[in-house]
Structure formats: C-alpha cells, structure tokens
Amino acid sequence: CHSECLGNCSQPDDPTKCVACRNFYLDGRCVETCPPPYYHFQDWRCVNFSFCQDLHHKCKNSRRQGCHQYVIHNNKCIPECPSGYTMNSSNLLCTPCLGPCPKVCHLLEGEKTIDSVTSAQELRGCTVINGSLIINIRGGNNLAAELEANLGLIEEISGYLKIRRSYALVSLSFFRKLRLIRGETLEIGNYSFYALDNQNLRQLWDWSKHNLTITQGKLFFHYNPKLCLSEIHKMEEVSGTKGRQERNDIALKTNGDQASCENELLKFSYIRTSFDKILLRWEPYWPPDFRDLLGFMLFYKEAPYQNVTEFDGQDACGSNSWTVVDIDPPLRSNDPKSQNHPGWLMRGLKPWTQYAIFVKTLVTFSDERRTYGAKSDIIYVQTDATNPSVPLDPISVSNSSSQIILKWKPPSDPNGNITHYLVFWERQAEDSELFELDYCLKGLKLPSRTWSPPFESEDSQKHNQSEYEDSAGECCSCPKTDSQILKELEESSFRKTFEDYLHNVVFVPRKT
C-alpha cells in the first residue's frame, strides 16, 4: 500500500485506493498535508475557505447554543480562536489581540433580562453583547459592586439597553466600559436606550469621564423622579442622539420631579488639616426662599486615587461607600458681607490618608415646582503625618564578641513616609551569675543571650482551647457569634421535631 494509506488498500502504491488515510483526505486521495488554498479540518480532512465560511455563517444565523462559528488559524479551520487571539470578521482569520481579548457573548432569543446578581454573573467577562440587555433589578445585597464585577467589562451592545423598574439602582456607572450601543435591534418605538419607572436612579454616568455613542435609535425617559433633566440632556449631547427624540420621548413632568437638581456650584473657602482632623468651610448658599434650606450634607471617604465619582458603590438597598454628615444651616444675616460661612470639623480620621470630599445642599421643593440647590466639586484632601507606631517583631542576635545583629519589621501604621529608623542602645553591667558559677561542674549549661522565638506554653494553649472559665478566673470563653447562636437554635429545633416524629412513629394507638 501507499505510504499515506492506513489499515489496508485495494490497489498497491495508489493513494486513492486506501481504506483510511494516515494524515489527511483531499478529493478522494490521501495526502501528507493540505496544500494551499485548503485548510486542515478536524485533523483528517482538507477543506477550502468557502466550506469553513459556510459553517461560520450557519452557526451565526441559527443562534443555536453550542454550535461553533468556525475560524481560520495556522492553516486550520477550527471552532474558535485560541487564547490571546480574536477573529477578523472580513476573512475569519485569528489575529493577536492588542491588550485583553474581546469576548463576544451571543444571547438566546436576542435579549437577556438581568433581574438578579445570579443572572448578571452569566455575563461575567463579556466585552461584546450580541443582542439586547434588559435591566430589571428590584433589590439585593452589595448590588453596585456585584454588577460592576460582572457587567463592568461590557464595551458594546449590538441591540438596545433597557432599564425598567430597577428600584435598587442609583447610577449606571457599573457599566464602566460601555462605549457603544449599535441599535441594530430596537425596542418598540425605535428606541435604543429605554429608561422607565426607576424610582431611585439619580445618575446615568459621570459624563466628564465617560463617552457613549448610540449609532441608531432614540432615547426614552419616563417616570424617573430623581433623575434630573440636565442629566438626560447631557446624554443626548454626548451620545449623538440630540435631535432624534420626539416631543413625548422625554417626559418633562415625570423626570426629576422629586430630585434636588443642583444648578449652582458650592466653593470651599477654608481648608485646614491635622493628622486626624480636617476643618472645612464653604461659601454660604440661600435659595430664593431661605426657609427652603434644610441644611447641608457632607460626604467623605478614603480615596487612594483621584478618580472618585459621587455615586460609586451606591445602591438604593443601603450600600453606600460614603460617610454622610448632616449639618444645620448657619444663622442668616441681613448683611451679605457678614454672612457666616458654614463648615464642619471632621474628626477621627487616619493620618497621612487622602480623602475625597464634597458637600451639597438639602432643600425642600418650592411652590413653583422649581428645584434649587448647590453642590461642590469633589475635592481631595490629605491629612498630615504623625509619629508612626512601633516597629514590629524586633530580633537581636550576637554573632561574635563585638557585634549584635538587630532586625525588625516595619510598623503596622507608618502614618507617613518613613525615611529612617533611630536605634538606641545602652551598655549593661555583666551578670554576677557568670562569676559565681563553678565551671568545672559536669552538665553545666552556660547562660545564653542568643534570641529564641517566643512560644506559647501548654497552660496558655489549654486556656485558649477551654470553653469555660478556669477556677483562677484568668480566662473566659469568647462570646458566641450570631451565626453560632442561630445554628444552635436550628439544631435544637431539629432535635425537638425529630423526637416528636419518633414518638408518633414508635407509639401507635392500640386498636379498641
């Protein structure tokens, strides 16, 4: 048989008469490798580009789960590009990614509803959504962080984005990388972005840091009482949809009607710091009717980097990364020049730590249904340095008659930039024990000054392991946590139920 035959053949030295091919099969003959313009397919066939392209389009058009959109890589027609490569849609070739590779997620039936953290986790790592997304989240724990972890990498949506009755959302900033909504599939009414009845939605994105392009379709905003109209108009300008909307697409009466839409800028007039305090004062603000001013709200939190936005980490279910302080308005003076500047002394802060701070007014709604208010920009203030805590785990070892090696770990709280350490030492008198000992005694162990690591005695271990207080009263049991108490109650309830079950099964009433 021919060298490319495997198993047997019907005619000697003829690659077209093989029972099976050793390498690849091409047009009725066995070959060692697939010549151009053919590609290896499933490690035994040679196919042309049209064959591989037909497989790709067949799966793409069917949208069946589990099928493969075949691509070409290293002269092979394979189910998908290997790690580190992405497909070129024009020629199906796998090309190296520039940075992290995109991950295209194809949605069944063309859309997916995100109504819980669990459903959001199914899209973790996706960068391109081939379909439409509907966000409908009523509640949950730590929602802002969970949504950002699972949806934060999405850069492109081919269909539309719909935010509907998501009472738990305060902001859409968890879509931190969303840059493009194509609108290839539109919501009824030709809408590519749809926001309806979101009672706590206050911000779409921080438009000073976020760009969003909507290729096709219109915007729809109705019944978002805490979303200011200025935020919607800003989205029109940034996304390129200005002029597409009709009169009733953006409701003037049901958007922002319960919001404090600040239209003035508060400026800080005085800032002073110490290692654990920050004193702030800002310019006074009074609405047209000074009785509408209820006070100020001061927001602050630790910020290692200057990239904080107002609604980071917030949701309507209680999660809030900001510390909020309510401040009463100052006494009002008739003389504008003698107006008191409101302020606040922030206490209990960490030394040498940068804080993000902003302040906003708290006002009631005027009778004319106009909203007044003022808010400052987010500023960054760093507390002063102070003395560091003591170095940890000092170790001293003498390696000769004239040297001592000293080692330690950095302090747990540096409280500033540590530039150097101060080492103090003092000579001590020799131990009298060394002169009084009889060095001729056998088995004498000389006193040693070398360091030995501390260890816990058996008594201390027994005390720590004991669940009861000892007789001397030195140790006591740790208080039980809520989960331990709940577990004990469940076990007790189970024992009672099981005992009742045994009584009912074992003891049967005697027939009379």
Rank of each mutant, 00 (worst) to 15 (best):
F193C: 02
K301E: 02
G189Q: 02
E283V: 13
D335V: 06
R347T: 12
L161V: 08
F220N: 04
V381E: 09
G373I: 03
L201V: 06
A259L: 13
Y191P: 08
M297R: 01
G343K: 14
S116Q: 02
G217N: 03
S132F: 01
S389H: 07
Y194S: 09
F175N: 00
K409T: 11
G256I: 03
G140A: 15
S338M: 11
K209V: 15
I357P: 00
D197R: 15
N334H: 15
L294R: 03
R332K: 09
K407G: 05
A385W: 05
S401K: 09
L265S: 11
G183I: 00
L169W: 01
A374S: 05
E184V: 09
R179Q: 06
S116D: 14
N340S: 08
D312H: 09
S116I: 10
Q339K: 13
G256D: 03
E264T: 08
F193R: 00
T127H: 03
L227C: 08
G256V: 07
L280G: 00
T254W: 05
K337Y: 12
V117T: 03
S192A: 03
F174Q: 01
I379V: 13
T371A: 09
D197L: 15
L229I: 01
K267C: 09
P351I: 05
I134R: 07
L107M: 07
P304L: 15
L161C: 05
A259F: 06
T323Y: 03
T185P: 09
P304T: 11
L180Q: 07
L227M: 11
G373R: 02
R247Y: 07
L123Y: 12
R347N: 08
F290N: 15
M235V: 04
L201K: 00
I188V: 13
I134E: 09
W207V: 07
S333A: 04
M297W: 13
M297N: 15
C126E: 00
F174Y: 14
P391T: 04
N136Q: 01
H233G: 02
I214H: 02
R370T: 12
N255Y: 04
S173D: 09
L143V: 12
L186Y: 06
Y305I: 06
W286R: 09
L212I: 07
T323H: 15
T213A: 07
N224V: 01
M297C: 08
F268Q: 00
G243Q: 11
S116P: 01
V397R: 09
I271S: 06
N340Q: 14
N198C: 02
I188Y: 13
T118E: 11
I135W: 11
L349H: 00
Y191A: 10
V238F: 09
G159A: 03
T364Q: 01
E231H: 12
G140F: 06
R138S: 15
L178M: 10
S274F: 12
V390P: 15
N150C: 05
L298A: 01
Q203V: 05
L362V: 03
N150L: 04
G152S: 03
E262L: 02
N200S: 09
I137A: 08
E109G: 15
G217Q: 02
E146A: 13
K253I: 11
K407T: 15
I114F: 02
M346Y: 01
T273M: 11
N142S: 12
R369G: 04
L107Y: 05
S401Y: 12
R179A: 10
S132R: 02
Y167S: 02
F311A: 15
C261D: 03
Q403G: 15
W344G: 15
G343H: 13
L172P: 02
G318S: 15
N200F: 10
F268T: 01
I327K: 02
D384P: 10
G348F: 05
V363L: 09
F268M: 05
S158Y: 10
L151G: 01
S389C: 04
I327S: 02
N399F: 14
P288Y: 00
W286H: 04
F175A: 02
S333T: 08
I278R: 00
W322F: 10
G140C: 15
A303P: 02
L178F: 03
L201R: 00
S260R: 10
D367H: 11
G140R: 09
E236V: 14
P287C: 14
L107F: 08
G313T: 12
K162G: 13
K218R: 11
E264H: 06
L161D: 00
F174W: 06
K177H: 06
D257K: 14
D249P: 12
N198I: 02
S366L: 01
I188H: 11
K177V: 08
D292F: 09
